[in-house]
Nucleic acid binder design. Sequence first.
DNA 1: GTGCGACTGGGACGACCGTCCCACTTCGGT
DNA 2: ACCGAAGTGGGACGGTCGTCCCAGTCGCAC
Lengths: 198, 198
Amino acid sequence: MGRISAPERRSALVEAALRVVSRRGIAQATTRAIVAEAGMSLASFHYAFESRDELIDELITTVVAREQHAVLPEPVPGGDLREILEAGLLRYFEHLRADPEHEQAMLELTQYALRSLERHPLAVAQYARYAELAAHSLEVAASHAGTTWDRPVEQVARVLVAFTDGLTLTWLVDRDDDAARAVAHAAADALSRMAEPR
Amino acid sequence: MGRISAPERRSALVEAALRVVSRRGIAQATTRAIVAEAGMSLASFHYAFESRDELIDELITTVVAREQHAVLPEPVPGGDLREILEAGLLRYFEHLRADPEHEQAMLELTQYALRSLERHPLAVAQYARYAELAAHSLEVAASHAGTTWDRPVEQVARVLVAFTDGLTLTWLVDRDDDAARAVAHAAADALSRMAEPR
DNA sequence: GTGCGACTGGGACGACCGTCCCACTTCGGT
DNA sequence: ACCGAAGTGGGACGGTCGTCCCAGTCGCAC
């Protein structure tokens, strides 16, 4: 292993940890497994991080900050709100199908954070970030459809996040593409009714 | 510890394991923690079960079989379909608020099962059971509202399960009651549109 | 080139894990 | 009363965990 500065090592370890958590789950993300994935020795781990907990915290923070697969990157032009929303949800679904392990890892990290008092805020921040991204997408969608939301967009965003989570969780279990698309359709339908009638 | 037959001990251990998983998470549900919760010695554990894995498998099976907090136990009389569905979802939400640890435990057990090939079927069975209960509730609801579903009820049920999961997950993170009720409202709205217009 | 601080590797530590062994006690059938 | 089977308790096993120590090596400023 060549010589790397401590900060570089930190991010290399975070990336390695994300790969291990995605592939094998957080329970299997031991210091030794992470270090092996990064191709380092155990001592390097505790040179860069004080503890495994610190690494996991930074992993969650990093990965949440990076999160940006918004549900609606570029809405379909010419469609009405419902169609734009459904296209966005289907886009998210394709992202989920392309990298299911990543979403499963995010889910596990949330649950992990939920289990300790000092880590709970990380989970809250994660979902606040989701809601923020969702709110932005919803604003873009409404603007493209030439309409406005009939309540604060943050409230609609919260519902979108819940629908997305449900779609993710159920699809991860049964891998039923058609069912997931039905969820996307129904969710888009419900959300579109939260806009002012044109 | 008095003398108990092996089968009784098995179910006592399963109950103890459920309490430990609910309270502290599956990662903390060690053989010693479970045995302490049940007030037994370690030897009794391996007298009743061959391994911890066997206990966890039986825990999942048991708890899934017992699952019956259907979303719509007794629909409100006189309401239309949307109102009946929303009342059912709110009923589920009250159940979630009353015992959040149990739903969190169920979520963790699902994720745990998803992580190994031989346990994956348990997660699938868990969600098949959810869908079954949801389908039954939906049939009751449609019948009370005097309408019928415009597609196989199993498909609607799958969507309901996804919505319920999303509501659960997001509420467990932010504990925002109003937001959860908004999800229930939107979900009921979307689902009610999957019925034949009267 | 020399010194010093930053970085590295291997091995060890105590704690806890799942599992197992074995001497012991209790029970039900005879 | 007795005897085999069923159930119990304590202690120990090997393995893995997170963490730590320390002797060694490298890069860079002087």
